[in-house]
């Protein structure tokens, strides 16, 4: 018979033992290892998902911060630009003011310098004119300038008439104080005596005189008393020269009016006020 029942029983037992052996050494360990790996992969996937979620959260946070930073930067940049523009305008205004001040200061300085030069030139011209006149008179007429001035002055006094002479006479006789005779140069004694005699004769009184040297008089001599004055000097000549020079230099008159050259007067003028 093909079936041996002892063998059948033995094979049943053998098969059951084999089932146990394979469960013990094959299926159990393999399935446990696979389960562990699957669990590990699942854990890694969960960790990755968690990390991804955190990364997305941080990304969103960083994006939000970046947007805030951009907005803040734009605001700061705008503010800085506006402040820079304002500062620039302020500096430009200040620079304009400073430039104007410097220009005015320079103008003033130039004006002062021109006036100083003008005064110096005037003084120098006066001296030169004196010297030339003195030398001319000495060489041509054998007369000194001072003496000639005195003669002209005394001639003016003698030629006084009318209301001017009356007022001057009243002024000279109304007070016991001496009348003031000012001259550019120091008058010698003979000229002083001549002036004293001429005045005494002209006004018919003994007029006390006080001689004084006055450098401000431009080459002249004056008699003043209580606001009355009779004088002769070269101021008019010099004024005319001054105007010509100022016009030549393009300067303004110290009085502020444009100077126009005037022809020098051909004769001396006396002023009685």
């Amino acid at each position: 018979m093909l079936i041996d029942w002892f063998t059948v029983g033995a094979q049943v037992v053998n098969f059951l033992i084999l089932v146990w052996l394979l469960k013990r050494f094959l299926y159990g360990p393999i399935l446990a290892a696979m389960d562990a790996r699957e669990q590990r992969i699942a854990q890694e996937l969960a960790d990755a998902a968690t990390g991804k979620a955190e990364a997305q959260k941080e990304r969103a946070e960083f994006r939000h911060k970046n947007e805030q930073f951009d907005a803040q930067r734009a605001t700061l940049l705008t503010r800085a630009t506006e402040e820079a523009a304002a500062e620039r305008q302020k500096l430009l205004d200040q620079a304009g003011k400073d430039a104007d001040a410097l220009s005015a200061q320079r103008k003033e300085s130039l004006s002062k310098e021109a006036r100083a030069i003008h005064m110096s030139l005037r003084r120098r011209t006066q001296d030169e004119v004196f010297a030339i006149a003195r030398q001319t008179l000495t060489d041509l007429a054998s007369a000194s300038l001072e003496r000639r001035i005195c003669e002209v002055f005394l001639q003016r006094v003698c030629e006084l008439e009318g209301e001017a002479k009356i007022k001057l006479t009243e002024a000279l006789q109304s007070c016991s104080e001496p009348a003031m005779v000012r001259s550019t140069m120091d008058l010698p004694a003979d000229l002083r005596a001549a002036i004293q005699n001429t005045l005494n004769e002209t006004f018919s009184a003994d007029i006390p005189l006080l001689f004084e040297t006055a450098p401000h008089l431009v080459g002249g001599i004056e008699l003043t008393r209580h606001g009355q004055r009779v004088a002769w000097d070269m101021a008019d000549y010099l004024t005319s020269l001054d105007r010509s020079i100022s016009h030549l230099l393009g300067l303004k008159d110290p009085s502020g009016e444009a100077t126009e050259p005037e022809p020098p007067q051909s004769q001396t003028r006396s002023t009685i006020t």
């Binding site: 079936i3 063998t7 049943v12």
Partner: peptide
């Protein structure tokens, strides 16, 4: 290849 073995497996 033994009918005893296959019979044992079939019995199982």
């Amino acid at each position: 290849g033994s009918l005893s073995t296959t019979a044992a497996l079939a019995l199982c």
